[in-house]
């Protein structure tokens, strides 16, 4: 059993140094992020989202595609909510059938990316460190 100890310490060291290296890699400024104040302390790094560049690349002209209306968890693509922040309607902890803010972002972004077969779909692709 005693022979295991050095191995254990080595494993610990490897893991700790990896962790430290990871934490210092980040800090990419000059990009727009989706980090509404409503979330408070973020679980993951804010999702990268450069509004104009995205829409240009995605050839999006109609605002209502993203800035939709609706209620009780049902989307209404006829009513534009352009200019209204997402967190206005989507609460972090919603009451009733309403969609939560996190789910709204995930659903809106990922579902579209999956349908189009383009754009980020896995966690770390948006939540970049």
């Amino acid at each position: 059993m005693k022979r295991i100890l050095p191995l254990l310490i080595l494993a610990g060291l490897v893991c700790v140094s990896a962790l430290v290296a990871v934490q210092t890699v980040m800090a990419q400024d000059a990009i727009t992020k989706l980090a509404p104040e409503a979330f408070g302390k973020l679980t993951r790094p804010a999702a990268v989202f450069v509004h104009d560049k995205h829409n240009e690349k995605a050839k999006l002209e109609d605002c209502v595609v993203c800035h939709h209306g609706g209620k009780d968890g049902v989307i209404d693509r006829t009513a534009s909510t352009e200019g209204t922040p997402c967190s206005e309607c989507h609460k972090v902890k919603p009451a009733g059938k309403a969609t939560s803010l996190q789910r709204a972002y995930h659903k809106q972004c990922i579902d579209c990316h999956r349908t189009k077969g383009k754009g980020p779909v896995a966690c770390g692709q948006c939540h970049k460190r």
């Binding site: 080595l10 893991c15 962790l19």
Partner: peptide, 25 residues
């Protein structure tokens, strides 16, 4: 996430222990 991260390291450390036992004991 921080807890899950630490627990992942625990799993990896245990795997190293298991591997170490197989090699040295």
């Amino acid at each position: 996430d921080s807890v899950a991260d630490a627990m992942t390291l625990v799993v990896l450390a245990a795997c190293l222990i298991f591997a170490g036992r197989r090699l040295t004991q």
